[in-house]
């Protein structure tokens, strides 16, 4: 009886299901199955011809070995500095662009978005060259000022900071554009009312614009956190996690554990824990940046 009804439903909506089916099939094969499988893998030890169940061993190793904690620390540092800096820079730059003429807006938007469309590999290669101790642009500049250069990426005291600087100085193109769009949708009457009340430009920005942009801010904060927890290409190109473990971030550790050491199980355990950490951060952010969405 129940089955018959289901079959009838399917027959009646066969076109709808047919429309969804191809995408859903690819989705199941290349996202659904891997997601489920990734949980299993973290309880296994990989061998070329056979795999073995090892229970919680991989998680135990992950905590006994300090690599995971080092990588976690590096990643959290990176995220805690880069994400807020990016959001703040996006907010400031967007606020500065917004009052400009249409032409100027288009120009600056393009200038700030261009590095975002270029691949992280290209940008990282450029910066690696800029940081190069002998022929790099940065040291040449410092030498011109009479200061002496450094081996920015080769010293563990500066390597992580150099990567962080690069990420901050590469403008947050996505954020700028989203803020601009959000600013455009704030009704003018609100500002007019404030002007009548004698509010200064800065007051209007701080009291009206910034609070009303909160949903966009939240979106960018969550997106930025997820993104900076997954930093990889820059590290792969510029430092490969070194010197020492100074720039070993989580995704790089996962890559190395899985695809150099072939410890797929351990890499799977790392992945799951990273996922959990990202979720915790996202949850906290939703909770604390609790936004009043009524305005939209």
């Amino acid at each position: 009886m129940g089955l018959q009804k289901i079959l009838q439903d399917i027959a009646r909506h066969k076109w709808d299901y047919l429309f969804v089916l191809p995408k859903f099939a690819v989705f199941v094969a290349f996202i659904g199955v891997p997601v489920a499988w990734s949980v299993f893998i973290s309880f296994q030890e990989f061998g070329v011809f056979q795999t073995r169940w090892v229970g919680l061993d991989n998680f135990r190793v992950a905590f006994e070995d300090d690599l995971f904690l080092i990588a976690l620390k590096n990643t959290v540092w990176y995220a805690l500095i880069v994400m807020p800096a990016n959001v703040l820079i996006a907010l400031v730059l967007a606020s500065l662009i917004f009052p400009l003429s249409r032409k100027a807006q288009t120009f600056f938007r393009a200038a700030f978005y261009l590095p975002t469309v270029t691949s992280a590999v290209v940008i990282a290669m450029a910066w690696k060259y800029i940081y190069q101790p002998d022929v790099g642009l940065l040291n040449a500049f410092l030498r011109m000022l009479g200061a002496s250069g450094r081996n920015w990426l080769g010293q563990s005291s500066t390597a992580m900071w150099s990567v962080i600087m690069m990420s901050i100085l590469t403008p947050p193109g996505v954020g700028i554009i989203m803020y601009l769009a959000a600013m455009g949708s704030i009704p003018n009457e609100i500002y007019e009312a404030a002007t009548v009340d004698g509010a200064s430009g800065f007051q209007k920005w701080w009291r009206i614009t910034v609070p009303l942009l909160k949903p966009t801010t939240l979106y960018l904060v969550v997106l930025g956190t997820i993104g900076s927890f997954q930093v990889f290409s820059q590290i792969m190109i510029m430092t490969r996690g070194g010197p020492g473990h100074a720039t070993k971030v989580l995704v790089y550790l996962i890559y190395e554990t899985a695809f150099r050491d072939m410890e797929f199980g351990l890499a799977g355990a790392y992945s799951l824990m990273l996922f959990a950490i990202i979720m915790v951060f996202a949850f906290i952010q939703f909770k604390y940046l609790n936004v009043n969405l009524e305005y939209y």
């Binding site: 997601v35 990734s38 997954q230 899985a258 992945s271 990273l274 990202i278 979720m279």
Partner: peptide, 12 residues
Amino acid sequence: TMMIPGHVTLVP
């Protein structure tokens, strides 16, 4: 699944 970072599924 949009929230799940891509690297989680790298190995499988």
